[in-house]
Nucleic acid binder design. Sequence first.
DNA 1: CTAAAACTTGACGTTGACGTCAAAGGCAAG
DNA 2: CTTGCCTTTGACGTCAACGTCAAGTTTTAG
Lengths: 119, 119
Amino acid sequence: MRIGELATRAGVSTRALRYYEERGLLESERSSAGQRQYAEEAVERVQLIQQLFAANLSSRTIAGLMPCVDGDLSPAEAQARLTRERDQIDAQIAELTAARGRLTAVIALCAKEYGRPVT
Amino acid sequence: MRIGELATRAGVSTRALRYYEERGLLESERSSAGQRQYAEEAVERVQLIQQLFAANLSSRTIAGLMPCVDGDLSPAEAQARLTRERDQIDAQIAELTAARGRLTAVIALCAKEYGRPVT
DNA sequence: CTAAAACTTGACGTTGACGTCAAAGGCAAG
DNA sequence: CTTGCCTTTGACGTCAACGTCAAGTTTTAG
């Protein structure tokens, strides 16, 4: 399929797809006229990329993880990279949880001033 | 105190403090010569701002929350804003947790190919 | 009083993940 | 063959949270 179809099927812009290619996250064949050609699996791959972006990973980080997905890496190395990244995510979750706690504290304060409990 | 002291005491750059003021997160009195003057409480306030930034909140969002902290808002409205923001954080935590799950799945896959269990 | 340190505003630089033209070529339909 | 939509590369625009000069003023130390 060509870039437009992949874009709509994966729910992203064509600009994003070209950007992913530029950053080494996504490859494509080229037709004789130079147009990008994608296989079916590309849809899934783009969705995975999207989810990783949604999880706050940078394109650089994702680029470092793709060889794991593709199996172009010794399993040991792949595991190491993935685990490092998972630890990063754990750290972020911890930070967010802490922030949530601070917010909750402020909410409780408001409730106190207002003279009734919060849900 | 002046901006330099506040900066070192709160652990941020003077540039950051001026930026916070520009964005409405932090106020200051001015000396006759135009230099910024801060009260003691500013230290705490800057630290709170820092923590909110650390929790991935934007300056815009934080600006929307400051009236709650300052009590310049009806407690009901304050509570509403804070709760909305807390829900946002919950959503982000959920996304990160999902991403963590996907990564863990990939890790398991690597382990399987490699023929031995993961920690 | 003078030099150094701190402060002022203004403005351009940075990084990331694209958005948004622009100019030009490609491709299926009538 | 000619619309008209799709695609190509190139390049500038954007937004956030500051960093980093620059040039001039103020405060402080000696």
